[in-house]
Structure formats: structure tokens, C-alpha cells
């Protein structure tokens, strides 16, 4: 990764995350097909809902014939972390038009957000529309195509987990977290480590009584507050 904010730089920067989308997209297509969704519906969900892990939640709730409002509410909870991510990202696009802001927001994902946050460390804290939109569109198309392929292949592969592909996303979070830790100089390194340790404890104990759909958002909010308090008290 370097400081360039061009379409070709974005394509290079996004390449590693593409593998994550292919792995999980294929898995989603296979799971959706196995649950009884047609390849058409699988693909429509990837185009319209476009919500990664939440799409697995939708399929499992459809299978159990959950009421539509409880499905929509669960998806809202799982994706409410998007609000935090777009709030963090939006100030960097203040000078771009409203349409471009909405376009960047519409296709924002955990991964493109994390890539963008990493890019800031190389680009002198700047982001622009061509770079971010390219990262977003590559991710979007890869996700749609892989879930369609997964749904079509679904008849032949019964156990996608066997290949370890579902770990691609987790590996990506590990990689992006590490790269963020070593390159973000705006927050003291030890303070960042302390916040990461706090998140580990909060997730572990939170899992006892907080549904996992809500946990990521709550832990993030509490960990950010904890970080601010620690920063003022000790750093």
C-alpha cells in the first residue's frame, strides 16, 4: 500500500480482500442453496441487502419461518455498526458531492472501511472518491458473482467449511488490525494494545449475556469510550 489515491492503486490495494469475498461469497451461495433458496434469490440478496454475515442470519431465520419484522430488526442490529463506520469515514468526503457521498456509503463494508482507515496512514490522512469507490465496486461485484457461483455449485459441494475458506474473513480482520496497529501514529501504540485487550475481555464476558447480533456494536462503543478515558488519564 502507498499514498496514491488512484483507480489502479485502489485495485491493487483491494486485491487481498477479494479472496475473502470469494471464500465467504461461495460459502453463502452454497448455504443459501442448501437451505432452499434459488440462485436468483441468493443473487438478489447479495445485490440488494449486501450485508455479508447478516445474509447468513437472514437465511437461517427464513428457514425457521421467522416473522419478517424480526428478520429486519435482527439485520438492523447486526449492521448497526455500519452507522459507526460511516460516521468515522464521512468527514473525509465532506468536499465531495452529496451523490458521491451516498455512493461511497451505499457500498461500504467492514473490509473497505478497514482498507480506507489503513490507507489514511499512507496518504497523509486523505481519501477520495475514485479510490474508495473502486475498492467498493470491486468488493460488490466479487461478492455478487461469488454468491451466484456458490448457489449454482451448491449441488456439487456439500461442505464448504472443509477447505478453510471461511477463515479468509477472520484472517483479513487480523491482518488489517495488525497493519492498523503498526501504522496508525495518531494513537499511542501501547494505548491501542490496551484497547485491543479490553475488547478481548469485553467480547468474552459479553458473550455470557448479550446476543452476538448486538455484541459487536456494544463492545465497540464501550471500547471507544474506554480508549478515550485511558487516553486522558494516562497518555
Amino acid at each position: 500500500m502507498n499514498g496514491e489515491l488512484t483507480v489502479s492503486a485502489a485495485s491493487k490495494d483491494t486485491l487481498p480482500t477479494v479472496f475473502g469475498y470469494i471464500g465467504i461469497g461461495l460459502a453463502f451461495g452454497i448455504v443459501g442453496k442448501a437451505a432452499g433458496l434459488s440462485p436468483l434469490l441468493v443473487t438478489l440478496m447479495s445485490i440488494i441487502t449486501y450485508a455479508g454475515s447478516a445474509q447468513f442470519v437472514i437465511v437461517s431465520m427464513l428457514v425457521t419461518h421467522s416473522p419478517i419484522f424480526s428478520i429486519i430488526f435482527s439485520v438492523f442490529l447486526v449492521n448497526s455498526r455500519m452507522i459507526l463506520m460511516s460516521t468515522t469515514l464521512a468527514p473525509y468526503f465532506k468536499r465531495e458531492s452529496m451523490l458521491k457521498n451516498v455512493l461511497v456509503g451505499s457500498l461500504l463494508t467492514d473490509e473497505s472501511f478497514a482498507l480506507g482507515m489503513n490507507k489514511l496512514n499512507y496518504s497523509d490522512s486523505h481519501l477520495n472518491f475514485p479510490w474508495f469507490n473502486t475498492a467498493n465496486v470491486i468488493s460488490y461485484l466479487t461478492w455478487i458473482i461469488s454468491s451466484l457461483v456458490g448457489a449454482v455449485l451448491g449441488n456439487f459441494i456439500s461442505n464448504p467449511e472443509k477447505f478453510g475458506l471461511d477463515f479468509a474473513l477472520v484472517a483479513m480482520f487480523i491482518g488489517l488490525l495488525y497493519l492498523q496497529l503498526i501504522s496508525d501514529r495518531s494513537i499511542n501504540f501501547n494505548l491501542q494494545l490496551i484497547v485491543v485487550g479490553f475488547v478481548l475481555l469485553a467480547i468474552y464476558f459479553g458473550l455470557i449475556f448479550i446476543p452476538s447480533s448486538l455484541l459487536i456494536l456494544l463492545v465497540t462503543l464501550v471500547a471507544c469510550s474506554f480508549g478515550v478515558v485511558m487516553k486522558h488519564a494516562f497518555f
Binding site: 455498526r81 459507526l84 463506520m85 460516521t87 468515522t88 467492514d110 472501511f113 478497514a114 482507515m117 477472520v170 480482520f173 487480523i174 488489517l176 488490525l177 492498523q180 496497529l181 496508525d184 495518531s186 494513537i187 491501542q192 484497547v195 485491543v196 475488547v199 478481548l200 469485553a202 467480547i203 468474552y204 458473550l207 455470557i208 449475556f209 446476543p211 452476538s212 455484541l215 459487536i216 463492545v219 465497540t220 471500547a223 471507544c224 469510550s225 480508549g227 478515550v228
Partner: peptide, 26 residues
């Protein structure tokens, strides 16, 4: 506050995958 979002979200997404939830128990 928001400057902590990237590391907090990424580590939360990682750590959640290291555990299996059993409501009411560790």
C-alpha cells in the same frame, strides 16, 4: 471517540470468531 472505532471493530470481529456462545454461561 471515533478514532478508536477501527481497532475496536476489527478486534471485536476477530475475537467474536474465537468463541462459541452459550447464553448464561461462559
Amino acid at each position: 471517540f471515533l478514532s478508536f472505532v477501527p481497532i475496536a471493530i476489527m478486534s471485536a470481529l476477530w475475537f467474536e470468531n474465537l468463541f462459541v456462545q452459550h447464553i448464561g454461561q461462559l
